[in-house]
Design a protein around this nucleic acid. Structure first.
Lengths: 129, 129
DNA sequence: AAGTTATGTTATAAAATCTAACATTGCGCG
DNA sequence: CGCGCAATGTTAGATTTTATAACATAACTT
């Protein structure tokens, strides 16, 4: 699946196409970039070029906004996501120790039972960080 | 797989992107269109917009040209291909009669044995049609 | 040698995008 | 209520990309 990942991350779409696909305005798309939610590449002439992954992310952003999450919240969500992804990558490298397994199991259990996961910082979009 | 087909046929790429992906010049890409080998869509502003299928086809065209096939030859190849595809679509609709099966088997046999397939018209790129 | 094919090159016009600034709208809050 | 900020709209002017069309050319065919 390395091939597919590469394709999805190829920056081949100009902003006009992205507008049509996502039903967002250029202003919105550039604003989300300003907020560092997406980082499109630039071509030789300084035009923004987007990948399919960028498209996916824009749809996600749209959904979050519809749900009432603000920019800061969305940023926070992606930071968390990245932290988790990195942790996951680490796990894939080294096999788990018994201790890791216990810790992971405990976290899972707490999450499922509806208790607060100590790893998941509380977050309120309307209160400043 | 209907979803994937749709995505592959979505016209989302401007010619600049296609140039980079295929390593063809704009002149070449437009010329192949003039020859009716590809038919990109146009956006509201009359700019050509290409799909992933178009990209695939351009790579194929490149390969044929490298092999020494000329435009007329490539056109012929695609006409044949389309005929076959259409026939295939028909087959998928109605179950085969015993006669169909025999005929198909025989054609397969002739092809594999290196004999001329009566269905495949002889074609010489350097002779006029 | 002349014609044809595939491609290069150039000029001119139109469309798409960029940045930056100012405008507007809706919402939380003292 | 009225202020302030967040998200988005709008506009202007510059730059880049693409379109069409015409003419040029190199390599083949005949």
């Amino acid at each position: 699946m390395k091939e597919k990942e590469l394709r999805r991350s190829l920056a081949v779409l100009p902003i006009g196409t992205v507008m049509k696909l996502t039903d967002l305005t250029a202003r919105q798309i550039r604003y989300y970039e300003e907020q560092e939610l997406i980082m499109p590449q630039r071509n030789d002439g300084n035009r923004r070029m987007y990948s399919l992954n960028d498209i996916d992310k824009l749809f996600e952003i749209k959904d979050y906004l519809d749900e009432g999450v603000n920019m800061v919240g969305i940023k926070e969500i992606y930071i968390e996501k990245e932290v988790r992804a990195k942790r996951q990558r680490e796990l894939l490298k080294k096999p788990l120790s018994d201790n890791d397994v216990r810790r992971i199991f405990q976290n899972e259990f707490l999450s499922v039972s509806g208790l607060k996961n100590p790893d998941e910082p509380s977050f309120n979009a309307n209160k400043p960080l």
